[in-house]
Write a protein that binds this DNA or RNA. Structure first.
Lengths: 132, 132
DNA sequence: TCTTGACCCTCCAGTCACTGGAAGGCTTAT
DNA sequence: ATAAGCCTTCCAGTGACTGGAGGGTCAAGA
């Protein structure tokens, strides 16, 4: 398969696949004309990476997951540990966003949003503890 | 004030403040020795930016907020619109994270996490619809 | 007076994971 | 012969910093 075919099949831009080759995630062969040649196995890997990325794993985490995937003797505990690490990263981000959301929603709530210049949002940003 | 003083007072690294000058968010004066000189007004602005960044506004959104803050004739509706845009950005990110979390938690749940190689997490990444 | 340590300066490069674009080669069909 | 649609490499940019090298400045103490 050429790069366009795997790109379509894996749901990734061709550019991204070239980048993944650059950083050593995959190593397609080359045909005589210099085109990258992908096998089903390459496609599997790319789809695997695409899904892991979709779950928010970093490229380095994907590299590790891929290595575990290819290692028939891995312990599932190693995979689970990595997934749990990522799960708590997600939880941390969600907590951060949730706190932002709470504060921002309060400010928005307090703002009339009319033609007048008086604005609790700006006041809140300027001096959070005495937002009027 | 020197950069170290405003850095402490605004709760920002000195490097970050230099960067903010680079991109034109603030323009401190210089004393004879080349050191940046900050006024209370600069400090206010920096603290304002720090808080807006803390609520997740992008630098460009901060630039706009700062301009609105300085404009005594702004309409609070303009500020509110920006804040609401950002609020929905936050909501979108939270929804995305929440979906990732849901899927990942399911996989983690299904994984024994022992010494054996059998791993539903890897299976789920390899072929999401038939994760066993 | 000298030195030490804590400041400050600029400039360059790196982070993360791509993404866009230029300039050109290959393939297939008309 | 030419056009469309692939493919290639290489360079540069994104956002928002962050680290480090290499050097100047300042205030306090011996």
């Amino acid at each position: 398969m050429n790069i366009g075919d795997v790109a379509d099949a894996a749901g990734l831009p061709a550019k991204t696949i070239r980048y993944y080759e650059d950083i050593g995630l995959i190593t397609p062969h080359r045909s005589a004309n210099g085109y990258r040649q992908f096998t089903q196995s390459h496609l599997h890997k790319l789809a695997f990476i695409a899904r892991a990325r979709g779950l928010g794993f970093s490229i380095e985490q994907c590299r590790t997951l891929l290595a575990l995937y290819e290692d028939r003797d891995r312990a599932s505990a190693d995979v689970k540990a990595l997934a749990e690490t990522h799960l708590s990263e997600i939880d941390a981000k969600m907590a951060e966003l949730s706190e932002m959301r709470r504060t921002l929603a309060e400010l928005v709530q307090a703002c009339a949003g009319d033609h007048r210049p008086d604005c609790p949002i700006l006041k809140g940003l300027a001096a959070p503890d005495k937002a009027d």
